[in-house]
Amino acid sequence: MDNMLKLESIHTFIGQFHILEGVSIEVPRQSITVLLGRNGAGKTTTLKSIIGLTPPRHGKVIFDGDEIQGKRAYDIAAMGIGYVPEHRAVFRNLSVLENLKIAEKKRGDLDRKSDFIFGLFPDLKRLYKLPGNHLSGGQQQMLAVARALVADNKLLLIDEPSEGLAPILIEQMMVAIKELSKTTTILLVEQNFIMASQLGDNYFIIDDGKTVKNGKMSELIKEEDVVKEYLGVSLGKSGGAK
């Protein structure tokens, strides 16, 4: 089995709204797979459907050989999925240390991993006593990623890590994610196409709640019309982030 995660045509409703209408994704082990698509296409909902916060009503979610659709979020997370939500949802009333500590799934997880984590994000080490709401946006984002690294997760779901970050921090975040992909599998949602194209091994495009296209990232970069049609991004021009 070479896929860490496989979605088979999942359908997810939020209230009465049919948000995902057939999303199928395969995430190979030890790689970075990027979910692309316009705002509101259903990328975030896809991640939430995997982790079980918005459970899919139809379809299958297969993680490391087990069907996990319909299980509770905490059961799914405990099986080894780390979730980094959008908008840097760190716990504001908890200190940096507590934010990391709460993610322990076994006693001593943090002690074991702290060198690795602080090696990736040296800033956090200096700040570890501060409450979450005293951190800058970039620091919060790093904390949110770091939190997902405390437990031994086999798969990381990372939602828009570059959102609202200064270019220098984006650079740092990219280095960190690249480093992570050596030891774990990553499913990344990213609006910043430059970042996505540099990080991703494979890509899936979601449009209107359906997966419409997928393949190798190296090939997508050549297909200007596809990128323009589904992502609204013109290649070749400078920047072209959002």
Binding site: I51, Y74, Y83, F91, R92, N93, L94, R147
Partner: peptide, 14 residues
């Protein structure tokens, strides 16, 4: 304390 702010994120941590 974490749950007061964001219950679903706490759940997503297992």
């Amino acid at each position: 304390r974490a749950g007061v702010q964001d219950r679903s994120m706490v759940e997503a941590l297992g």
